[in-house]
């Protein structure tokens, strides 16, 4: 039987791209874009994408009754969070003071305004474009990806985990922030692997083969 990878659809973000990228790297898997909680229970792997504002994302997740299923998946099977899918794993977000899922402990602050680059120019928010990810520890999902590989980011908020050991990748943009976070079966990234060309596809392929 084909392994099923569930891409959680809660009405936020570009799910087609995530699904297409997964199909591209895992032609033998069934990639199912779904908002049905039972599909998350059945899936071998779960991907939670997400874009936009966290308050909206949490509201949409709850309105589809997906909160418990996502929490359960994050506790039990290979789980990939992308962008807001990373941020919602944490507790409090500044954005609208929304409570996330509280699976990991930490804050989700906004980039401070008025940050400047070494040349004195203003660092724009959202942080948009290709930035380097420094791998802070070896991990199956970094396989084949050199340190400081560039991935595509677009976000105004970032995660600040309470525990340093959660970090898997760091990126500098005015400050150093956690661009990849890992705990047990959870790997979550602030960047968009589905939009990060070959590097992103490699990370997604690593995820589809990951045995945590």
């Amino acid at each position: 039987m084909k392994e099923m990878i569930a891409v959680v659809d809660y009405g936020m973000g570009n799910l087609r791209s995530v699904a297409k990228a997964l199909e591209h790297v895992a032609p033998d898997a069934e990639v199912r874009v779904t908002s049905v909680p039972a599909d998350l229970a059945k899936a071998a792997r779960v991907v939670v994408p997400g874009q936009g504002a966290m308050p909206d994302c949490m509201r949409e997740l709850d309105s589809r009754g997906l909160r418990e299923a996502v929490i359960h998946a994050a506790a039990s099977k290979p789980f990939l969070g992308i962008c807001v899918g990373l941020q919602m794993l944490f507790g409090l977000a500044e954005e609208g003071n929304t409570h996330g899922l509280g699976i990991l402990s930490g804050r989700v602050p906004r980039f401070p305004s008025g940050m400047t680059a070494p040349d004195g120019s203003l660092l724009k928010v959202p942080h948009m474009g290709w930035n380097e990810v420094r791998q802070t520890n070896a991990h199956a999902l970094w396989q084949g990806l050199p340190d400081d590989t560039r991935f595509y980011f677009v976000h105004s908020y970032y995660v600040a985990p309470d525990q340093a050991y959660l970090g898997a990748g760091l990126t500098s943009y005015g400050i150093d922030f956690a661009s990849a976070v890992v705990r047990d079966n959870i790997f979550a990234v602030q960047f968009h692997p589905e939009k990060s060309a070959d590097a992103g596809l490699r990370l997604l392929q690593n995820f589809t083969r990951w045995k945590p």
């Binding site: 297409k20 990228a21 677009v154 968009h192 939009k195 990060s196 060309a197 992103g200």
Partner: peptide
């Protein structure tokens, strides 16, 4: 756009 998004994995 649909066809492109299935083959081109950049923004």
């Amino acid at each position: 756009i649909e066809a492109c998004a299935a083959k081109v994995f950049i923004p």
